[in-house]
Nucleic acid binder design. Sequence first.
DNA 1: ACAAAATAGTGGCATATGCCAGTAAATGGA
DNA 2: TCCATTTACTGGCATATGCCACTATTTTGT
Lengths: 164, 164
Amino acid sequence: MRPQSASFDNCCNTAVRRAARQLGQLYDDVIESSGLRSTQGTLMAVVSNAGAATASELAEWLVMDLSALGHTLKPLIRDGFLRSTPDPRDRRARRITLTAKGTKKLEQIHADWLIAQRALLATFGEPEAFALVKALDRISDPAFADKFRSTVQKLREQPQRKSG
Amino acid sequence: MRPQSASFDNCCNTAVRRAARQLGQLYDDVIESSGLRSTQGTLMAVVSNAGAATASELAEWLVMDLSALGHTLKPLIRDGFLRSTPDPRDRRARRITLTAKGTKKLEQIHADWLIAQRALLATFGEPEAFALVKALDRISDPAFADKFRSTVQKLREQPQRKSG
DNA sequence: ACAAAATAGTGGCATATGCCAGTAAATGGA
DNA sequence: TCCATTTACTGGCATATGCCACTATTTTGT
């Protein structure tokens, strides 16, 4: 099979999803002994880093739908790794924090993650890996989304204008 | 919030998943009028390109679990875009093909996808976009997965060896 | 102060994706 | 030929993720 239909060549969306599946499988295997998935590890790391953020804040950083985040938080709360406590100053909001159990689990995951990180740098190349993360972060930037959307808008208003 | 916990800095897995969500939302919006998601568009494009591949072959190219692929094929078959016919030469296998309806739908999606592709190249930069796809394709290559796994193995056998 | 609008979450439904167990068929020896 | 193994798929269960509708609060405009 050719790498991809000529008509849909170089589709960044296709490529990024496929790579996400590949990396997900590789990282899941590495942290397998923790009993958690790499997606859950990421979520706990972000929660830990944020300290006591609201679901909205976490969703924004993760570029994730708020309700989707709520769904993914559920098993982690159910299993005692995370806690969701009402914010006394805004009774609509809840603050997401790590429990003691969650903190310990995150440390365990971190040890395994280090292996994965070293393996990635060694097999993909350090500068290449850093450049890749940088490019991906640029795509995840809300400013990129804004620019993309307004460009789509413009392209739709004046269809394929002949150059020259 | 800092870009990410210092301890989990430059996690390629986290970055690629986040970018996948972002691009997914952007591309889904662009092809929204088709009634399909960009993941489904990708799947149909791959099926079209493959001609009459088995689920196993499609799953391999997509770096996707076979049963996961089976699940995602279901709604497209149910809605008449794809067809799954038994292979007479190997009665375990089934050949996945586009229906006439699916072919027409894919053409419609392609027109929208072209807009998204032009917008991506314009906002992210052409050389940067091509380089990104190339890097992602390298990660999706089975050879990369093999190298990664064997490196993990080695790192586990001889933990952080002091250099020098 | 009050009503309209914005914000924060939750629950339901649908697709996306993975693992495991089970079925069916083909393949590879002895 | 016959059985063990491998291959192709299917179904069940769980998480991942998004959209929409709904509830509860807070904020805003007058």
